[in-house]
Design a protein around this nucleic acid. Structure first.
Lengths: 148, 148
DNA sequence: ACGGAGTAGTTAGTACACTAATTGTTAGTG
DNA sequence: CACTAACAATTAGTGTACTAACTACTCCGT
């Protein structure tokens, strides 16, 4: 008893989860832009700072694992963070291959600024915190499935 | 009666929805890469092709609206699609400002190849279709909230 | 002690993605 | 009709993001 209305085009743009993911990611990051820009950070740089505020020092490899980003992406990003004065890069004396990324005083101080950000974003999104938590759970499952 | 375990750090990396979104988006797009690469497409190019298969011709402005991408991003992308032979770009005679992007025979033929992709990806993800539909709905709500 | 395998980061090259400025075209108003 | 505001697309410039190739260092086994 299938009718016309039941048939779905698997190639239609609006049915693509990958498309929804890409647009949602770009849109939400766009919400951060006006908040981060006055602080002198891009969104990926903000994520690096979050990681460092949580547990500095970290090596490029550590950050790569935490943020799921290629070392080749992080390398120039970290140089820009260093140029901005938020971070220091120093080779580890016990293993000269490894790079210890640490926070400067300025970088540490920036955390106080950043503390307002999550609430600001949630407010601008205007969504229930519960709904966001559900979404976060769903995204975590997708990440697990995709990186398996 | 709040305990230590109840307190959440709003700046911890793992609590960030924006981070989960970014990683999920990159991870899922990464799943498409080995499938699209032999077809000669990147993921954004694939999305443009989806839009065109659905309703060519489209102007840059149309595509910009549909894909939520800046015209400045699409302009070079479309040139690459033209160079690859999938697409043609021609000014509209009734309005010389507008660019009509149409499919070539090769571009149209590519659709048959692409028809296998959604099933392949869902299979590689190994997630329930129902769960993906729920996620899609949640993402649509976020997009609506973020682009309001 | 040393030579090769493996590891950590960087560099090169391609392709998005955004903002701001530019070019060319159309349309609206005095 | 002229002229200006609005519009469509492109270009320039910065910053991700990926793969592949490369450098420098460590570790392991003989």
């Amino acid at each position: 008893m299938s009718e016309m209305g039941d048939t779905v085009d698997p190639l239609s743009l609006e049915n693509q989860v990958c498309f929804a993911l890409a647009v949602a990611s770009r849109s939400v990051i766009g919400l951060y832009r006006p908040v981060l820009e006055p602080m002198g950070l891009t969104h990926p740089q903000y994520l690096v700072m979050l990681a460092l505020w949580e547990s500095a020092p970290l090596s490029v490899k550590d950050l790569s694992g935490l943020l799921q980003l290629d070392p080749a992406t992080l390398s120039p990003l970290l140089k820009r963070l260093e140029a901005a004065g938020f971070v220091e890069r120093r080779r580890v004396s016990t293993d000269e291959r490894s790079l210890a990324v640490t926070l400067t005083d300025t970088g540490r101080a920036l955390r106080a600024e950043a503390e307002k950000i999550p609430a600001t974003i949630v407010e601008r999104l205007g969504m229930d915190v519960a709904e966001l938590q559900d979404l976060h759970k769903a995204l975590t499952r997708v990440i697990a499935a995709a990186t398996r």
